[in-house]
Structure formats: structure tokens, C-alpha cells
Design a protein around this nucleic acid. Structure first.
Lengths: 344, 344
DNA sequence: CTGAAAGCGCTAACAT
DNA sequence: ATGTTAGCGCTTTCAG
């Protein structure tokens, strides 16, 4: 015995399916109030719930979207996800979470299953997303919004949300320099990732702006996770003139550095200053509270989903003023206690 | 111009839709190899992709499942999610993530949209899930698996994964007692949650087993997040004879306690021992590395999804040996550096 | 204001 | 070995 269907309701109410359909989809304006009431009652009695699948087959809309992230375990993404979810839920959308684990193969599999399942749109929040695949999606004319990079060839079907790392990172560099640090180092994310490059470049450029030769500031490749930070610090300390301050590509890396420093009996910030990037919730809660370049993570999530919804609007139902589909969000430095005057 | 449909392929290949359907769904055993090849070629040429929606309408299966969690931001859930996702992906399933934010209203909204969208099953990993709603789901005959509690009335359509907190928590208490602590305190999760009660009770019972009167050990209600831990510590310290060791309901709470202790100039573990529960990834990376009761989080996720898949199997395709639909997983104590001898 | 009929893209008997 | 015929549950003209 399957669920009760629209035909059941129609029969029980002594009307046609069309009529039921009308009241269900709210187009019951021109309808005798009495008829509507009757149908409504039957719906109630029979506990009728319209089949979304059947509706999708006709309407070509599933009210679902895919969200690709590199690592659910990264608190950074958690916030983004929350943002996406909140606005999705408010608009009747459901989100397929796709955890790519920084693995291009997973990306591909997910893209396939998402397009197969007919998602209305896709959110690329995954930094490990090969351009090839987002193009693939654009080719399918599936609306999408991409976080953190520019894209050509997806006008109309795609939007982007860029993050301006420069502002925040420059502030971080200024801060470190003011504290007297001269030997800095950077622990980047995997340099194959666009966002890793952006952060590194912003850092090096800020240094250059102060007349510090980027050549002399080591960049060690991490993995955006704590263990990467730990290993990177070992490398930093092995150098002839170890840096006195290190800028990490993200907070998790910074945490790893702090933890490794402790193991080396180096005190943060007395002996070593470290600044992170993200401002994950925990950043302010650990010891020492982390100085970090803050990203508007929740906002990014909300904005991304809102942009997608906007992209999904059919022309006729478009809002008065369409939103900008290429936006840029700012970063800012949050100074806490993992940075201090350079040791003499 | 919509996507190419099965009819298009049929026409182009000069065969009937059924034939195309057969090769697509792999039932092309009894088919002339030549025909299959031809169809396959056309499918390739036209870049045909079957509509999963249409297929679902007929098959009554969407190959999707819903996953309700209380808080994506909690690293504990991140691991569970990863486990679920990994096995889901491997089986062609996609997961609707539902972040309930510990909010029963969200639960309700999510349950509705999930059932409407015809998910094949639901995973309740959310501790803030009112029994009422999981019953509702069972009533709809939607297979589901519930984490962390027992349920009656869902035989056949539901499974459970319980976590045996006793073992790990008893070990934690033994550990603390051996270190000479006599005044302990507990910072629980919201006591409206079943899992919060389970943990508290396990703690109190372990104490009682050692002849320590539960009446004398304060239980302060937190919120499973860091800020709750911070506030709770303030309360603990305000007592006439403050505890020298506190057991937190989860690692986030423990982190909050550690951080607050620092603010009070109390050193952990020298002046205060704290033990958490979860063993989130960060637990070992912060300072001091956290002693904690470890939960097999990733495993829980994997197991949950596998159990759901098992529940979803139609009798005929059931595996040789059906799996146990009511399992219990163990916890164990991980001793790190947030616990030490009680101060004299 | 309401009903009849066609069709969304696919599967599954039932023919042949 | 392949084609024909009905639907799956809903929306949507087009009539009435």
C-alpha cells in the first residue's frame, strides 16, 4: 500500500485531479471557497502529501542543490555549510553535501551523481575543484556559484564569490613588522590549489611592499590541516636563521604550529609569533587565543546560496533588482594573543 | 532545448525505448551484441544521461538519504558525516545534510521536506531529535537509523546504534581517582537531551561504585559548546570547595573549560584536571593535549549508513546474512596531558 | 469555476 | 531478441 495519491484525494472529494492540484499549488484563487475547503479537508483526513518526485518530473525543478566542500572536518567549511543550509531551508531547498576530501576523483563522482539526480544548482566551495569540472557543469547549463576564483564562460549560469585576502593579510604583515619581526615564514596550503596561491602571493606582496625580499622568506607547503603545520614548523626551525613569526594559510595549520612549538619548548608568542587565517570558532578559545585573518565564513555560505537562488529565478519571477553575480568579500585582521614583540 | 531523452536515443538508434532502457539498466544479457553496441554509440554521441527523477517516479527509490545532525560546527559530527558520506558515495547514494542547530522546529521542517522529497531513508544523528518525530518517520514506513538511543516500535524499518559510555567514563573516573582527586564536577550537555543524561549518569554511577556520593559532586549544565564550558567553570570555581577535576560532556566543553581556567590563572593540569569526551581531531593538538573519552565517530557514520543500506534492501536482494540492526559501540579513555595528580 | 486529456522520462509486463 | 502498451503522480493546456 503506497502513499495516498492525488487521484485518491480527487475521488474522495468528488472532484478532478486538476482541482486538487490547484488547491495544493495555491492557484485556488478562482475557486469556490466551498470546493477548496472540501478538498482541504480530504487532504487532511487522508494525510495526503504531494509527491515531490512526480512534481519534479513535470516542473523540471527539484528544489535541491549540491554543495561541494573539500573537508567537512575543517571548521571553516562548517560555518559555510551552516550559512548555505540556513538560507536553503528557508526557501524550501535541500542540500546534497559532497565531501570531496581534496580528491579530484571524488569531485567527478559527485558531479556526476548530482547532475544525474537533477539538482537545480551547484555550489563549489571546494578549493580542490579542477576547473575542468566546473566547466563541465556550466556546459550542462546548471547554475552554479564558485567560491574564491574568477571564471569565464559561465555568464548567466554562474556566479562567483571572491575573497579579498590582500586587505587582511597586509594588515597581518603590518602587525608583525610593527612588532619588530624581520624573519618571517609562511606555511601555505597545497600549492596546487588556487586559494593557496592567492594567500601566499598576498603575503609575499605585502612583504615586498615593505621592502622585504620575498626570496628570503621561506614558504613551506602544508596541507591545511594540523599535522601539516606541525611538520612545517620542524622545517622552519631547521633553518640556519629560523623565522620569529610565521603566517599560516589557515587556522588549523596555525594550531598545528602552536602545538609543535610547544613540543619544542618554544613559547607562543614569547618565542614565536603565529598568525592564522579563517578565524574558526575555536581560534579564540584555545591557548593562546589565535591572532588571525578573519573570513566572513557564515556570510559566504548565505551569500552563495542566495546568489544561487537568484540565478535560479526564471526571468518572469526575477526580483525587481537582480543581485550582482560576482561579489567580493573582505577579510580583516583579528589580533589576539599568539603574536608579540619579536625576541631580541 | 531540454536534455536528450531516452526517446531521442531510441529514435536515433532505430530501436524502441525499451531496448534503450535495457542497455542502460544493464539488463542487456539477452540482446544481440550488435544492437547493444549501436545503442551504446548513440548514447555516447548524444551524451545521453538518464533522468534519475523519472526513474525514481517508477522505481519508488531516489537513492538519497537524509542525515540529521545537531551542529555541523561540532567536529564530532564532522567525522560522523564523513563516514556516512564515504559509504553513501560508494553505493550511489547522496546525502541531504540537515543541520538542526539543536532546534526542534528545524527538525520538523527537515523531516517534512525529506519525506516530501522521497528520501529512501533517514539517519538521526541529532541528539536534539524529539522522539515524536522519529516515530513520525517510522509511521511513514521510512527506514531510519537512530544514533544513541533505543527505540521501540520501529522493528523492520529502523535500526539503532548505541554508544556504551559506561566503559570509557568509568575508566576516566578511575583515572582521576587514582590521581588523587576527590572533589570532582561534571559539566553536562543540555539535560533535556538523552545523550546528556546517559553521560551524566554513567559518570555519577562510576563515582558511586567507588563509594563517592553523587550528591556531593556538582553537575553544571552546559551547552556542548565552548562558551558553555567557560561559564560552567566560573560556577565551579565559585563553590566553597571547588573541584580539582572536571569531567566535561564533550571536548568542546572541555576546551572551553581549559580556556577559562587559563583566564583565571589556573594551570591545566597542575591546578585543575579536565577530561573531555569525543576525542575530536583537535583534542590531541591543543595545549594541553586533552585527556578524553574517545568515541568511534567515523565508524559510527560508516556503520549507520551501512545499516541503512541494509534496511533498504528488498528481501530478494538481501545479503546472505543480514546484519544486526541494533548495535552498540564501545568508548575508551585516551590519556593525554590535561589530567595530573590532584594539587595538595 | 472545474474537468478531460495529454504528457514529463522512464520501467515493466505482455506480446511477438 | 525486441517492440507495444500501460502506467508512476503530477501539471497544464484546452474545453465546457
Amino acid at each position: 500500500m503506497s502513499r495516498t495519491t492525488m487521484a485518491d484525494v480527487a475521488q474522495a472529494a468528488g472532484v478532478s485531479k486538476s482541482t486538487v492540484s490547484r488547491v495544493v499549488s495555491g492557484q485556488s484563487i478562482h475557486m469556490r471557497a466551498e470546493t477548496r475547503q472540501r478538498v482541504l479537508r480530504v487532504i487532511e483526513d487522508l494525510d495526503y502529501r504531494p509527491s515531490h518526485v512526480a512534481r519534479s518530473l513535470v516542473s523540471k525543478r527539484t528544489l535541491t542543490a549540491g554543495l561541494l566542500v573539500s573537508d567537512v572536518g575543517n571548521p571553516y567549511y562548517a560555518e559555510v555549510i551552516r550559512g548555505v543550509e540556513d538560507v536553503a531551508l528557508a526557501h524550501g531547498y535541500n542540500i546534497f553535501l559532497c565531501n570531496t576530501s581534496y580528491n579530484p576523483n571524488y569531485c567527478q563522482k559527485y558531479i556526476h551523481s548530482l547532475t544525474d539526480k537533477g539538482v537545480d544548482g551547484i555550489l563549489f566551495m571546494s578549493s580542490s575543484m579542477p576547473d575542468e569540472w566546473v566547466r563541465e557543469v556550466a556546459r550542462h547549463a546548471i547554475p552554479s556559484v564558485v567560491l574564491g576564483r574568477e571564471f569565464q564562460g559561465m555568464e548567466g549560469v554562474g556566479g562567483t564569490i571572491a575573497v579579498n585576502f590582500e586587505t587582511g593579510i597586509r594588515a597581518a604583515v603590518d602587525h608583525l613588522l610593527e612588532l619588530g619581526h624581520r624573519r618571517l615564514a609562511h606555511v601555505s596550503g597545497p600549492l596546487g590549489l588556487r586559494t593557496s596561491q592567492l594567500r601566499r602571493d598576498a603575503f609575499l606582496q605585502a612583504l615586498a611592499a615593505h621592502g622585504i625580499d620575498p626570496q628570503h622568506t621561506p614558504v613551506i607547503e602544508g596541507n591545511l590541516r594540523t599535522d601539516g603545520g606541525r611538520q612545517a614548523l620542524a622545517q622552519v626551525l631547521a633553518m640556519p636563521q629560523p623565522a620569529t613569526a610565521v603566517f599560516a594559510a589557515n587556522d588549523l595549520t596555525a594550531l598545528g604550529i602552536v602545538s609543535a612549538a610547544h613540543a619544542y619548548n618554544l613559547r607562543v608568542p614569547e618565542n614565536l609569533s603565529v598568525v592564522g587565517l579563517d578565524d574558526i570558532e575555536l581560534a579564540g578559545q584555545i591557548i593562546p587565543p589565535l591572532t588571525t585573518v578573519a573570513l566572513p565564513r557564515y556570510q559566504i555560505g548565505c551569500l552563495a546560496m542566495r546568489m544561487l537562488l537568484d540565478l535560479l529565478q526564471t526571468p518572469q519571477e526575477a526580483e525587481v533588482q537582480a543581485m550582482d553575480h560576482n561579489q567580493e568579500l573582505e577579510t580583516r585582521l583579528v589580533i589576539r594573543q599568539s603574536t608579540a614583540r619579536a625576541p631580541a
